[in-house]
């Protein structure tokens, strides 16, 4: 199998069969973000995907080239968290420079919100292979996160117009609809 085919298969696996939000359950934040419009969701999702890719690659380097040689493996979580926060902050800064619209969508504490389960999870899962695999785990996993965020924003837009029982409004109904989407994602098993 060529590298390209392998990469494509890996893409399908990360986005659909092993989706970070609906299958691996590492993106609870996606459920909570009041994404607003689908467009905002796409921007936030794309930003998160970038952070996931960059921090997964950087964390791979930090772990294999610094922590393991130094015999400081037990510090890995602290190092990963610091690297993730730093890359989230720098990427947010860069994106805001490039486009004010993106900056507005990310909000004031975009960087703080970006350090979530999905970002750290991508770094942890990506540790198994080489650096390319680590970066691709972050990037493709992030695309799966982006897809989930857009799908959920779409559902939430529809929910605005439906009659939901008072106690189920907001987060509860979002979770139940996310469960239904997760059920649909199970159909991808076997792809």
């Amino acid at each position: 199998m060529s590298n390209l085919t392998r990469a494509l298969l890996f893409l399908v696996s990360c986005v659909f069969t092993q989706n970070f939000v609906f299958v691996r359950l590492m993106g609870g934040s996606a459920l909570l973000k009041k994404a607003g419009s689908v467009a905002t969701a796409a921007i936030v999702g794309g930003y998160t995907a970038l952070v996931m890719a960059v921090s997964a690659a950087l964390n791979w380097i930090v772990y294999k080239k610094a922590l393991v040689p130094l015999g400081a493996k037990s510090l890995y979580l602290v190092a990963f968290a610091a690297v993730a926060l730093l890359s989230a902050w720098l990427i947010a800064l860069a994106l805001k420079r490039v486009s004010p619209r993106v900056g507005k969508a990310l909000g004031e504490n975009g960087a703080a919100l970006a350090v979530n389960c999905a970002v750290l999870g991508a770094s942890l899962i990506g540790m198994g292979g080489g650096i390319v695999r680590a970066a691709l785990t972050g990037l493709f996993g992030g695309l799966g996160y982006l897809l989930a965020l857009v799908l959920l924003a779409g559902v939430q837009e529809r929910l605005e117009f439906s009659r939901v029982p008072e106690s189920m409004k907001g987060l509860p109904i979002s979770l139940v609809s996310a469960g239904l989407i997760a059920l649909a994602f199970m159909g991808f098993i076997g792809l």
């Binding site: 106690s167 189920m168 109904i173 139940v176 469960g179 239904l180």
Partner: peptide
């Protein structure tokens, strides 16, 4: 996972 999401939603409700 799907059932977990739904049950948590229902529990919150």
């Amino acid at each position: 996972p799907a059932g977990g999401l739904m049950l948590l939603g229902i529990a919150m409700g």
